[in-house]
Structure formats: structure tokens, C-alpha cells
Design a protein around this nucleic acid. Structure first.
Lengths: 440, 440
DNA sequence: ACAGTTTCCCGTAAATGC
DNA sequence: TGCATTTACGGGAAACTG
């Protein structure tokens, strides 16, 4: 349930009179056939109402503006569709937990299913909870609504769905809710997008993007004089988001610590890399994301001064597959030219002895050469067939902790996030609202 | 459907009068909730019967001898349970294909579900197809039965299930069908078991086990003076089968070609390895399966003569995970001692230059050192921290094909298999009846 | 033919049951 | 509580469907 279990809490809102309207809920991606949980909370603590409130979930209630879109899909709940009585809980307030909800597409899409103007990950749906309360002679209908939800059928669609939810959220700060947003998606200011992208990195790796990194990304996606970013360029086939999402995935799975430490420069162009390295001494290297590998990959570039010539080398990028076999620090530690003992990576830019940055992460140093069964332990050394004379060996000098530029997290970020996501309450660094699916 | 799609063909058999009884069907492992297909064939070509035969599948019909076993599970068909009319086909004969069958456990196990005498993979079930034929005033009931089937709920149970099916089949050559076999499983002669094991390797890697290999296995499992093998020792927790199945898996996924070539000695004890290598020149090595890694792993041992002393080294075994990152030939090619260029693996036992055996499989030799984007290609070199002086470098001398002992396949195997599996007809080397689940 | 979408299912992890 | 068994579901790939 990992992906969808996150409960989003809803306040019950008296129809037309939102007396209690603190929606505390997250944007969400739901997958058909996969269980998710929703908790509905009645904000006022009126114990007298206990057992008098019956809540029922309804999918896409009263959103006719969207249901007329050609090919718009319809879904029904397959489990826990039944109403559930409210119960009082220790925390105070009346709560109902729908713990086994799951969606199934009901055929009969809106007619004209060919030439749909939206791809499925651009369809925004709504889950409402309605209650009909009769108490003390009074009768009132209440309902509360989720923020828009994207329904997908395969995990591979999640990144696109996420892009939609980000775009929607950013536009919702200025405009009223518009579920048919993507029929004609408005552009966004780079200023807005960059902030949200930065948060993704905060969420995935506990460190935002810096000015230089953002400026490199800006150069890649903004070609509008007013600094506007267009949906198609961001999200469509080979848009920037596919690439960034792959990198976020890489960070979350394999690079969390080094990213947090700030050792990964990441978004640097090749030209900038040359510029930075060419004046440093031989063996200086920096770590950057591949711009050509669409699935997200990381590589390092190092400088070599030889025969009065300066060369900046780069190794073939490492992907998810390789990083799961060996961690980046180990890869760097074991890196070698042509089966010699010479590792050209001597100083992490700028001038940090390699082992100072990575030594603490090495898994193979100090290991006994044989294991208990008498087998030799082996290391995988990544060598390249470079025939230039190798530079001098790196200084192995223990694991002194060098403080790079400490975390740049602006603490105002929390406030800004709350502005965008009114209901968000439990920001805590490890429970960010973005990309919370699949938190290892 | 890969795992269960294999259709097994059944002949309709007149009850009590098996006029047409050529059952052509394979033993099978079925997984709950996963589709499988069954084709039922009426052997006699009587076109007049067309459209008069309605066939219905029934699970565990008339096997009361088993249903009284405590905790015995019951299953029902969830799809295609409906009867299907027979139709004539080009091949001749009347055929019905049940193309979307799937099983679901029906609660209410046989009472006393605690202390079941059988684990689920020891439960043998039967699928029968019944037909009630009224034609030209005659009425006759016909039915045909599958060979026993084991029903599992997770892929991890398949190896155990397979063990049961092998054991059942081997015993069925002498005894009548006994579905409660595993309540008190009889032992088997090593002679029988060894043959079946050998076939597994033929099926997985197109090469049987040799005499020496079998004898090593025999030593591991037979401690009975009469050469009997006991079910518990073969199949239970850390029985031999878990280990062998892991190795079969390794072969099927990563070692098919080298196994077929006979370059993998595989089943050799450490003592035997010492014996074989100690008189060969430094750098001789042989490839064997790890005896201690339960999940299936492969390693190599090599001999070194130094200072008048003879040492046989062994490297930490390689598992599925490592082999999927790098092939065994590449691992061997890139193997090195302490980041020098010296690969101690020089001759494959006995005296075959390394590259003669493996050169043709190397994926990184002759590769341009840089790829089209200007990145250096890298090799993963497996080095060990051995400080003894390295032996002389290996002879790289092209890919001449050395013929080792050509395939030892006895061609009588097909006959013997037919004896064990009466209905088996399409033996073809690539469609063996064993371990046919998950043929890549 | 093809691209977008869904289904299928292995393999692993987590949950469940006894 | 531990172990045997089932359920859950990510991820990759095949199958579907207009």
C-alpha cells in the first residue's frame, strides 16, 4: 500500500456554509486496483453527533465541467464503498477511516473516446465524501472534497501524473480550481516552477537546488523572453520532467547522503565543467548528472594537465542499475586507469582530498582480504582504457570531515509550501508532500 | 502466462472403458490467480459428435482418499468455469480449449487445519474434464483426468512444488497413482533420482551431468547403504533440492552457453579441486558451484606455485545478482590481483588458455575506449587484496574454439522420459517437461 | 501500424494466519 | 511467538484497443 496508503484528512464542510473548512489533504496519484486509505475528520468535537453521521465516498461527484471531455474515464470504488459510521477517537473529533478503498475503471468512457484531448495523466478527478445528518430535528447535508487526484493504471505513469499535479498546484495559487486545466494548459513562470523543482530535491534528498543548478536548468527549458515555461516542454514525451524525475529517483535510491552533503554538483553543463576544472590541478573532479541519458544517470569529470595540454575527461554515466550494484563512493574509490593502481580522481572540486569526502562511505576499505570461508574478497574496479600516463596516486588519509557549504535550505520554504497546499500540516522534512510515493 | 500457459492435452476417456486413453499432458505447478490454459482433445475423429459434446472442468473430483487429509486445501475455478462446446480443428479430432482458467482457494479447508501432515507443496490435486454425451439414442459419461498438479500461491513455492512433482513421477513408474504419497513418502533409489536431476540440467542448460558430477552429488545426499534417498533430505528446509534449483536457475539465466560447452565443472568438492589442480602449472583454474551459498553461486579456484609451496585459491562466489551485472567470462577476463594488470587465471583446467574458452563471450574486448558522446568506457575489474607476487600475464590469442569433451547427452534419455511421462510427445530439447516454467 | 493504455505476472516484501 | 502461507504491489513487458 506504500504508494497510496498515505491518508489524507478531510474536514467535513457544511455545504455552502464552510463553517469548518480546514482541508488537510495531499495531492495524490491513485493506481487502479491498488488499495488506498482515506480518513475523513469532522473538525468540531460534538460527541452528541456520534453514530449519527454516515459518510459515503463518491467518485467525481458534480464535476460536469469535466465529464463532458471526450474520452474522460470513469471509475468506481471496488471496496469499502459502503458507508461507515463515524466514531470518536482519542485525538478528539469524529473520524471515519476508509481503509480498503480501491478504484476500477467502469467502461463506457465519455463517448468519442478517440481523439481525446487529454492523456490519462492529465485527467483530474475528485473524491467527495457526503453525509446526511439528521439530529435533534435538524437535517443538513454536508460534503467535503479531495484535492484533484490523477488515476493511473501502471507505475510507469506515475511520473507524468505527478507532473500534472505539480502544474495544477502551481496554477491554483492564482486561479480558482480548474479541473479541465490541461485541455489548454497555461504556462508557468520559471520562478514558480524552479521553486517546486527545488522542493522535489529537498524531498528526495534533503537538500534543495542551488542558484547555479537552477540557472542551468532554466537555460535548458526557458526560451521565452518573459521567463515562461510551457506544459508541453516540461511534461511531454522528452520533456524536462522525465529527465529530472529519473535523477530524483537516483538520488532517493542511491545518492541520498552525498546529495545531502552537497558533494554532487549535479546540474552543470559541459562547458561550465570545463571552465571550473581547467584551472585546477590535475586530479580535480566534479560529479554531475548526465544530460543525454534520459533515465537519469550520474558521472564525474576530471582534469588532467599533461605535456602542457589540459584535458577534461568524463566517464560513461552510471545508471540506477550500476549504482545498485556498487555505491558511488565505492565506484569513485575503485576508479582506475588501465588496470593500474592509479586512480585519477584525487581531489573533489574544489581541492577536497577524495577520501575526505567519500572515505566514510567506503564499504570495502579495511575489510579483511578473505572472508570466513577462506574466499578472497573482491573489489570491482572500474577501469578505462586510457593510455596517457597516470597521475600520482591519491592521498589516503583517513576520514576527516570537511564541511562544504552547509545546507542551503531556506527555512521559509515551509511557509511557501503551506501557501500552495493549504491543508498541509505535517511537514517535517521526512514527510514532504511531493513525491511521497515510494519512500524507501 | 508464461508459467502456466503450457497447455496440456487430454484425451477424453470413456469411463471405465478407456478406449481412448493416450493422455498427453505434463505435470504442472499452478499458481492461484494466474491464468492457465488446458486443451482437451477427443482422440477419435468422429465429426458426427461435433457440437454434441459439452465439456466441463472439475477440480479434485472423486479423490476422497485425499480430501480427508487434515488441512487439505480446496480450490475453485474463477474463470472459464463454464462448459465449452467441442469443435473440430484442422489437426483432426475434436478439441476444446479452456483458455482462461484460474484457481482460487475456497475457504473451509478440511477441518483440523492445524497440524496438517502435508505442507502445501506436497498436496497433489487433480483436474478432471467430464462430458455427458447424448447422441443417436446413446448416452455415455466420459471423463479424463490430468496428472497431479500442485497449487501454490507465490512464486517462491514453485521449487518445492517441482520437487514434489519429480518425486511423484519417479515413484509412479513402479506404483499406482497415489495422491497421498507425501503423508508417508517412500524413499527413492539414487539411480532414479540422479537421472532426473541430470535431466534438469539438460533442460536448463542443454547438457546433462557427467559421472563425476553425479558422484559428488551422491556423496552429499546418500548415506544409506542401499543407495536410498529420503524425501526429507532431498526436499525439506535445507535439502539438496533448494541448492540444486538455485544452481539450475543460475545456469538458465546466466550460464547457459558455458554450461553447454562443458567449461563448468560445477560439482567438485574442495578436496577434489585441490587434487586436480595441485599438479598443474600456476594459473590453472576450474569453475565450480559454491557448496555453502544456499541460493546458488559459482566460483573459480586456481593454483599457484610459489616458493616451492602450492596454494589453491578460491574467490568469493558470484551470485545471480552479480552475474546479472557482468557475465562470467567477463568476470574471469577482468579478474585481477590487487589492481595490477595480472590476471591469475591463465589456463582453464586442464591447460586450456583462458581466452580460448571464454574469448568469444567477452563483451568488452575490442571496444573503442570512448563512446560516441566522448565518455570513457569502463570495465569493472574484480580485484582481490592478495599480496603474493602475481603470476605471468595470460595469453591473449584470439578466439580459437577448443573442443572440450563434446556433449555427453545420451540419446536414450528421450525414451526414458517417455516411460516416466506416458503422455509426453513433444520432447524437442527446448521443450523439456522439467522446469519448463519460466523459459526465458 | 502504432502509440497510449491496460493487463499480466514474477519476485520480493509485508501481512496474515495458525 | 514463530513459522507457513498468502497477499500486496513495484517494475518490466506483453497484450490490448481502438
Amino acid at each position: 500500500v506504500s504508494l497510496f496508503k498515505q491518508l489524507f484528512e478531510n474536514a467535513l464542510v457544511v455545504e455552502k456554509q464552510p463553517v469548518m473548512s480546514s482541508l488537510t489533504q495531499r495531492p495524490l496519484v491513485l493506481k487502479t486496483g491498488v488499495r488506498f486509505t482515506v480518513t475523513v475528520r469532522f473538525l468540531a468535537n460534538l460527541p452528541e453527533l456520534k453514530c449519527h453521521l454516515k459518510v459515503k465516498p463518491v467518485f467525481d461527484k458534480d464535476i460536469e465541467e469535466v465529464k463532458t471531455i471526450k474520452g474522460f474515464r470513469q471509475f468506481v470504488f471496488t471496496k469499502d464503498d459502503s458507508k461507515v459510521l463515524d466514531v470518536s477517537t482519542p485525538g478528539g473529533g469524529l473520524v471515519a477511516e476508509f481503509g480498503h478503498m480501491s478504484l476500477k475503471e467502469s467502461k463506457a468512457r465519455t463517448k468519442g473516446s478517440n481523439e481525446s484531448p487529454l492523456v490519462v495523466t492529465e485527467e483530474l478527478h475528485i473524491i467527495k465524501f457526503v453525509t446526511d445528518c439528521q439530529y435533534a430535528g435538524l437535517e443538513c447535508k454536508m460534503e467535503t472534497s479531495s484535492l484533484p487526484v490523477v488515476v493511473v493504471s501502471a507505475t510507469s505513469q506515475v511520473p507524468s501524473a505527478w507532473a500534472s499535479i505539480m502544474w495544477f498546484s502551481m496554477l491554483s495559487t492564482s486561479e480558482p480550481r480548474n479541473l479541465s486545466l490541461f485541455v489548454d494548459p497555461p504556462p508557468l513562470l520559471w520562478q514558480q516552477l524552479s521553486q517546486v523543482l527545488s522542493w522535489q530535491f529537498l524531498s528526495a534528498g534533503h537538500r534543495e537546488l542551488g542558484e547555479d543548478q537552477l540557472s542551468m536548468l532554466r537555460d535548458k527549458i526557458v526560451d521565452d523572453p518573459d521567463g515562461l515555461v510551457y506544459w508541453n516542454k516540461f511534461s511531454k514525451n522528452d520533456g524536462m520532467w522525465t529527465w529530472i524525475d529519473g535523477i530524483l529517483d537516483l538520488i532517493k535510491r542511491h545518492l541520498k547522503d552525498f546529495w545531502k552533503d552537497g558533494f554532487i554538483m549535479g546540474f552543470v553543463s559541459k562547458a561550465k565543467t570545463q571552465l571550473l576544472l581547467k584551472n585546477k590541478q590535475t586530479g580535480n573532479f566534479l560529479i554531475r548528472f548526465s544530460e543525454s541519458y534520459r533515465e537519469g544517470a550520474i558521472t564525474f569529470s576530471w582534469v588532467e594537465h599533461t605535456n602542457g595540454e589540459t584535458i577534461v575527461h568524463a566517464v560513461e554515466p552510471y545508471t540506477k542499475k550500476e549504482l545498485s550494484a556498487e555505491s558511488l563512493p565505492d565506484i569513485i574509490d575503485h576508479f582506475s586507469l588501465r588496470k593500474t593502481t592509479n586512480n585519477p580522481l584525487v581531489y573533489l572540486y574544489p581541492d577536497i582530498p577524495r577520501d575526505s569526502a567519500f572515505g566514510r562511505y567506503y564499504t570495502t576499505s579495511g575489510m579483511s582480504p578473505k572472508n570466513k570461508d577462506g574466499y578472497w574478497h573482491r573489489k570491482r574496479v572500474n577501469v578505462i582504457d586510457c593510455t596517457t600516463p597516470p597521475p600520482s596516486p591519491p592521498p589516503k588519509e583517513g576520514n576527516m570531515d570537511i564541511e562544504m557549504d552547509p545546507s542551503q535550505v531556506k527555512h521559509s520554504i515551509e511557509d511557501t509550501m503551506k501557501e500552495l497546499f493549504p491543508g498541509l500540516q505535517d511537514y517535517s522534512g521526512s514527510h514532504l508532500p511531493w513525491k511521497t510515493y515510494e519512500d524507501a
